[in-house]
Design a binder for these strands. Structure first.
Lengths: 253, 253
DNA sequence: ATGTCTTTGTGAACGCGTGCACAAAGATGG
DNA sequence: CCATCTTTGTGCACGCGTTCACAAAGACAT
């Protein structure tokens, strides 16, 4: 997931598997909804259904956090909300900067899901001088020149990159140099960061391409009754393009 | 990944592992960049570095597609671009609808990465009557009432949901009923879909929470010199909050 | 107090994904 | 034509994650 540098020992943190960590926010969301409806307890079966996972997996996930359930009853909703929040580090405030206030950056600044879970947008940063001072989501945009000062003054350790691809690595380098150790990257680029810095990437285009792959597969399977042919079939002739020697089928950026 | 319903046989499509499919867009992007620089061939080592993965992994990934390399030389860039594009189904046009034209929906509509890879924004749909007719990214917004007609008229099979969480499931149901079989969900909810429909979700808040977890871990590890204690330590006393009996530390939505 | 019934917590098996390491393939030079 | 050198393609082993299935734990009724 986290496409940091080349490799990493899977970041198996304090015994909690990475896969489990990735699901904790899911559980937290479901639990928060239950909490709002004043539901006192919930069984692993119910909660798993709400979170869209297998109940055994959920129980094993929780077992990494400790024994927080009561056999025959289930889990105390409020208690579990607190424990997961604490485990995820959401009991403290995380100041976040967003760099690159274009369409996406502005949308992120306006996104309510950040502020509601311990994340506070400390600053919006853009390279365009014309943007400076203009308020977005009630926060005045600051110029890239002040990036280092903003980071240190606010004690920011999490940065969000929403710049064009070309600027991402440079922005990333400056963020890291200024003390940021976690980066959420929306730019369609592979970022290089030193050890100790976490990078997670969100790529809208990649997600669509994965969907397209499965979509194509469905369509093809439907057309030719799914034969028992293992592979190497419907390869060359499946699409319109004829021979394969030299194909100028280059896609634009 | 794809949080469809309860389970699914891992969607092991035609022998190509899901993990490999998820990396193909990454390779494609790196290859496209090389193609623009008119680089004729590339070795697995070079390409792997550009894509941020292990070279052995890359070679194994390509081996699922076929033997497209030349030993002692490497891979033909143009040829590989074409092969991957075809495998991902990007040689054809995919009309896409975006439902929910708020900040995020508008940003997605303006996002260049879609149009450039075979994806065409066929329509923008919003439930707000005031939005109807208003152009966003050069495309007039249409009202939800016409959703079904829009889907069928344009032959849309991929839908993007960027509505508030409360409306997502309902929109999803209507999309599916109208014939959509792939959904990219930006709403912070678990969607239930019938078998045969793929759902991929992108949750900005979850990504940040995962980063916060690691960030907290770094901070804690730094404070208490990372002892060789295997686990079950620095549990209770790690954070400020003292005992754990009944904690009203509930987070807002 | 005892028995029954529900639900947790986890041991164990299995499958997928990853990475090493190397043989086979082909290019290139003499 | 042969030798050398580069790079692919893959067999193999290992580890993580998932799932099943069940014993232990506790609630609840009698």
């Amino acid at each position: 997931m986290a496409t940091g540098r080349t490799h990493r020992p899977a970041t198996r943190s304090r015994g909690i598997p990475e896969a489990t960590v990735a699901r904790l926010p899911l559980y937290l969301r479901a639990l928060t909804a239950l909490s709002e409806r004043s539901v006192p307890t919930v069984s692993s079966e119910e909660l798993a259904a709400a979170a869209g996972v297998n109940s055994a997996k959920l129980r094993k996930d929780f077992s990494y956090l400790g024994s927080y359930g009561t056999r025959g009853v289930g889990y105390d909703v409020e208690y579990l909300v607190y424990q997961i929040s604490r485990e995820l580090g959401l009991t403290q405030d995380w100041p976040v900067v967003i760099v690159g206030i274009g369409n996406l950056g502005a949308a992120l600044a306006n996104y309510g899901g950040f502020a509601s879970r311990g994340f506070r947008v400390a600053a919006l940063i853009d390279a365009d001088p014309a943007m400076a001072g203009k308020p977005v989501a009630g926060i005045p945009v600051q110029h890239t020149d002040d990036l280092e000062k903003i980071i240190t003054d606010n004690g920011v350790s999490i940065g969000v990159i929403a710049t064009p691809a070309g600027a991402a690595q440079q922005v990333c380098d400056r963020l890291v140099a200024a003390g940021v150790t976690s980066i959420l990257n929306f730019a369609p680029t592979v970022l290089s960061v030193p050890d100790g810095v976490d990078v997670r990437k969100v790529d809208l285009s990649i997600e669509l391409q994965i969907l397209a792959f499965h979509e194509q597969r469905k369509a093809g399977e439907e057309a030719s009754g799914e034969a028992a042919v293992p592979a190497a079939v419907t390869r060359e002739e499946s699409t319109d393009q004829g021979p394969d020697g030299e194909h100028p089928a280059v896609m634009p950026a």
